[in-house]
Design a protein around this nucleic acid. Sequence first.
DNA 1: TTGAATTAAGGTTAAATAAGGTTAATGAAT
DNA 2: ATTCATTAACCTTATTTAACCTTAATTCAA
Lengths: 233, 233
Amino acid sequence: MKPKILYIEDEPYLGKIVKESLESRGFEVRMETDGLAALPAYREFRPQLCLLDVMLPKKDGFAIGQDIRALEPNIPIIYLTAKSQTEDVLKGFRSGGNDYIRKPFSLEELIARIHNLLQLAQGQPGPPRAGASAGEIAIGRYTFNLIRYELRLDGNVQKLSHREAELLRILAEHPNQTVQRRDILQRIWGDDSFFNSRNLDVYIKKLRGYLREDHTVEIITLKGVGYHFSVCP
Amino acid sequence: MKPKILYIEDEPYLGKIVKESLESRGFEVRMETDGLAALPAYREFRPQLCLLDVMLPKKDGFAIGQDIRALEPNIPIIYLTAKSQTEDVLKGFRSGGNDYIRKPFSLEELIARIHNLLQLAQGQPGPPRAGASAGEIAIGRYTFNLIRYELRLDGNVQKLSHREAELLRILAEHPNQTVQRRDILQRIWGDDSFFNSRNLDVYIKKLRGYLREDHTVEIITLKGVGYHFSVCP
DNA sequence: TTGAATTAAGGTTAAATAAGGTTAATGAAT
DNA sequence: ATTCATTAACCTTATTTAACCTTAATTCAA
């Protein structure tokens, strides 16, 4: 489904160009030129992101942003303005903005920032792999659900503990790459002292046990360095 | 605890000013002037956010950003640069940047953007689901009425007690996120002494009982940390 | 330059600890 | 009286610690 963007802009020429550009990049855009029409349009359209010009005749963009934020605390909002005073940028952030772009801006930059915010709002950074939906990672024939801490193969479900899941996640985020031991220790235990180090060994063993069914998946030890999560298709 | 920021900047005068300003605003800052020192410093310092100058003599900020992103996929990264070409902004986002600030920048704006990103990175409360109106939260197939303390599934209504409702509310406000045990204890009981701690266990059990009907909803224990309210769609 | 000896790194297992789960009884408030 | 909240006792399990074993890397002698 195309991400929906609500765009409030009172300059019709600029607005038309931006709207068309965004549409050509795969967004569904609803534009309003009147600040007072923004909130009703929001309610009806239910966008994933709002792009608000600040300087509007009747109701300024900051006020609109605050209203929308009151309705939907987490929706990404980008303010768009000709003002270049720092004070306005600050006001933008205080009004609940997540980004603030000064006119004149480059369309490419605008699009990059939109993508960035939509991704941040989703919460998930890693590139999704085929065969696994959001919140899941494909690991060979397994599917690992990051939210429920479940490792599935065919019908079988293996519940993982928190530590097990953290470790598997780190490995799975770096398929066919070397992950340094101390980085894992830092991420899970916060330091890389001797005891935690032995602890990691224990969990590596557990994961190897869980992953035994699919021989294309392997945790390879690189002594003195770390681990290589090998996933050959 | 103060948020830690790793700051890579090769201009010592500018760097000193920025570092001190950030410190005066409650951040703990580690600055490095050498691009090659960035990654080791990152490993040791484990910051919550990275502030990377792009134009560095030996290794540029984008390369550093990519390395750091490989270690920690979710850490917010801000690029800082004198370049004003759009192409560089795009490159910045492609390298996994979450924001991009052009020099000369205002310190206040920088700080506002840092706060903004730290907040975004903190918690992504999942997208509120359709079918629940104001004062109600959708929890999987359930609907939870915050005012009447009622948990509904299809026709059935389960009345919750005050404590039960408080706890469910805290969890439901953070779907698919980790909530620290001590935060819950603080919010409900005002402290986190041993006895209240056992008390929480009792209420968690009760909620699990109420939520048993929908298997996509689960309260996952993270031993020593807290709970993860998993709501898979 | 081999190749045994040495050493460090990690594997394996099991025990200990701490954290939480479960259930029931007690106490407080309406 | 009844409901809800707290306390308590006992049970289960994740995590840590520890001990001992295996294997890879390094060293140094022949």
